[in-house]
Nucleic acid binder design. Structure first.
Lengths: 151, 151
DNA sequence: ACAAACAAGACCATTTCTATCCTGATTTAA
DNA sequence: TTAAATCAGGATAGAAATGGTCTTGTTTGT
């Protein structure tokens, strides 16, 4: 089943939220993030623990605590976040590592998967969160009918 | 988890086997197919029941029974077989159908997934089993050191 | 000292995946 | 007509992944 897990999807949303508010230099608490991105709060809390351990966000305890990105949004790719949550991407078990599959020498599909994976992974790597945050703001402007003021 | 299921992988192998022997106009029994492709026999048997119901293979009962492809290998794509076993490919739940995701109007990642899926699916559709069977034969020749006789 | 936050781990229900097994129906050949 | 070969269909089952909750602790600012 070629499907993004909920966990990874939620993590992407969380990082996206922090990317959009990044320039404001504020810390965001989990409740705020989970409400804004429509993710169950306790689940989001768990996800952010994991994102903190993996170095995507910095956490602060206590009053005035919360989360901030620990890198610039432009230095975080979609691939980074997805692989952080799901582990490395392998479209087929036969690609887990070179030589893993005893049939790869005679299997014509092996190469097909290899190439598909390369294309897919490269594609996800192309998107960083600065870029996504900009698109998000554009989309919101369009969908709420707020045109950009003409200069 | 972006991973091909075992079931789909085995189905691909099964169809591949029948594609390679297609021109010989023989029926193959499940035991032969499962041994050749190194798949647990009872599992392969189940898979072929399903492949038969879905029109990929014709089955014959009784002595001299077995399976044959019901279409020419060139008319079966990798995508066909995979979707038959796993259902339609959606890289993200948000793509299940237009309007399914309430956030797609403001979510910048939605379009990224849409495009990635289009590329991926088109890629799998490009490969038909005639092509794969030919590659397989080439690979076997190379790996067994049997060079093609020079004309 | 208290309240607001995150940290960590246990826990749990559901679904999916992988696979097996048993019984039955059909066909061919002896 | 009987036996053997072969597929059909359904039930079952264990393991893993998924998605999510809860409880208990720790840290920090006021």
């Amino acid at each position: 089943m070629f499907r993004l897990s909920r966990g990874a999807e939620y993590a992407v949303r969380g990082i996206l939220y922090l990317s959009i508010t990044y320039s404001e230099e504020k810390v965001s608490v989990i409740e705020e993030i989970s409400k804004a991105q429509d993710v169950p709060l306790p689940y989001m809390a768990k996800l952010f623990q994991s994102l903190a351990r993996k170095g995507f966000v910095k956490s602060f305890k206590g009053q005035k605590g919360g989360f901030v990105l620990s890198k610039h949004p432009k230095d975080i790719s979609l691939l980074d976040v997805i692989e952080a949550m799901e582990g490395p991407i392998f479209l087929n078990v036969c690609l887990i590592h070179d030589g893993y599959c005893p049939r790869d020498k005679v299997c014509p599909v092996h190469d097909v998967w290899g190439e598909a994976q390369r294309v897919f992974v490269d594609y996800l790597r192309k998107y960083n969160f600065e870029r996504l945050a900009v698109s998000a703001e554009k989309k919101v402007r369009v969908s709420t009918g707020k045109a950009k003021r003409r200069s």
